[in-house]
Design a protein around this nucleic acid. Structure first.
Lengths: 242, 242
DNA sequence: TGAATAGTGTCTCTTAGACACTATCTG
DNA sequence: CAGATAGTGTCTAAGAGACACTATTCA
């Protein structure tokens, strides 16, 4: 059935990064402006081809993170999101792209990448609404990334990756509110997160706010998964079905 | 910074399938015996290279499903599990494998694939315990597949994909028990699943059992996600942390 | 009839969410 | 002091799990 002389097709492999952070209470994604064809001038996810045939994919993701966002591996969440390989998605040939999801705390400056012509933190609202157009199938990848992040906030300690080394519970709540796009009751949230074993730990000190009573500081605890989970409130529309 | 004459490395792309089903109350995975090097004679996941440069990855997964398990797309769950591309995982060169998770109902016969030397449904217990050794990094892929399946039973209607067109609630419960590896109370389970909107629907008829009262028959409902979810009981060990 | 499985009722304990209230800061 | 944010107490309604009980079949 298989031709003896047949040999498997060769493809090109890229890595794309969906890097989320929080700025001004909004969930934002890092986009670069493409400096070369195809899609020159369009916004796109940071990423690129494997450097050489021996480069591990995860390693390539870390490298792109360094090169395009000047971010090093510490205090940073990086996980595989999915692989996108529809023929025709890239006019340069058959390109299979492995997408990674990265979460980083708010950064001091808007990132000056080395490669990209221009890089910036775009609000995901702008992207989802279509007001910011993306190259390739990157809209789809970002959409998948958002859904993954939303879901992981429920069951994992991912939210702490959005925060600095130490943080207040109100800050942690802002993460949940921004990613889920909901409002939460601060008082119930306050106890709920503290009740999850290993999620957050006291980190001494208090932080002065502009106003009001200074809040206690916490740091990420040892738990990777949350028992019990923090479920997002069920929006009226996203019912299972009827 | 980048050499002008540089061009991206080419890689080979494969698709691997983790196909789960239930046989004799046990979660089982389809394995084939490799007929060619490397790892000739070893057990491995069904899968193979892309056929040609224009073949979509998902399409390739469907093709392998047909070829190696004689299964067609209807009444079958197929989703991307992850991509495995560590250099050196395949001695034939730089191979990047996209793994898919497939769930099928119990099949009439043990599957006679066309390609594989021998194919059979192996209990996942055998695989996880190491009593059945697998080629490449397929143990890792199977492990990831199990965890994905366990997790998806909680939040999605995946369990019905293990069942026939119509099924009893007791049969559905066996799916949960086999995949999660726990015992559930039939009476509480009975109402719990029926309370989830859109999960299952009555399908007329009753089924005679060997003994006891015949059970009502149900079929899969329209809901893809479960609200509220069916959470697995927290095993003592898998606590979040302490 | 008894054994076996299907299906229902109900109790208890825990939790999620609402929200009143107290505490501690700045100006 | 007022205003603002942090943190606590408490009530209520809904859900999870335990388990007694009823229903319907076969032998």
């Amino acid at each position: 059935m298989i031709d003896e002389s047949w040999s498997p097709p060769e493809v090109l492999a890229t890595v794309d990064l969906v890097i989320f952070t929080l700025r001004e209470q909004k969930l934002r994604v890092l986009l670069v402006e493409r400096g070369v064809e195809p899609y020159r001038g369009k916004r796109a996810l940071p990423g690129g081809f494997l450097r050489h045939a021996d480069e591990d994919i995860l390693e390539a993701a870390h490298r792109e993170l360094r090169e395009e966002a000047d971010l090093d591996g510490t205090r940073l969440h990086l996980e595989q999101l999915g692989t996108y390989g529809t023929p025709g998605r890239d006019p340069r040939g058959r390109v299979i792209s492995v997408a990674y999801l990265a979460i980083v705390p708010e950064l001091p400056d808007p990132v000056a990448g080395t490669d990209a012509a221009d890089a910036g933190w775009e609000s995901v609202g702008e992207v989802l609404s279509g007001r910011t157009e993306l190259a390739f199938d990157h809209l789809r990848i970002v959409t998948d990334g958002i859904e993954r992040a939303r879901s992981k906030l429920e069951h994992s300690a991912l939210a702490t990756a959005f925060c600095q080394e130490t943080f207040t519970i109100a800050e942690l709540q802002q993460v949940y509110e921004a990613v889920w796009g909901v409002r939460l009751d601060p008082r119930n949230f306050y106890r709920k997160v503290q009740k999850v074993p290993g999620f957050i730990e006291p980190a001494g000190q208090r932080r002065r706010a502009t106003k009001g009573r200074p809040a206690r500081l916490f740091k990420a605890g040892p738990a990777a998964v949350l028992h019990p989970p923090l479920m997002r409130p069920e929006s009226i529309d996203s019912e299972g079905a009827r």
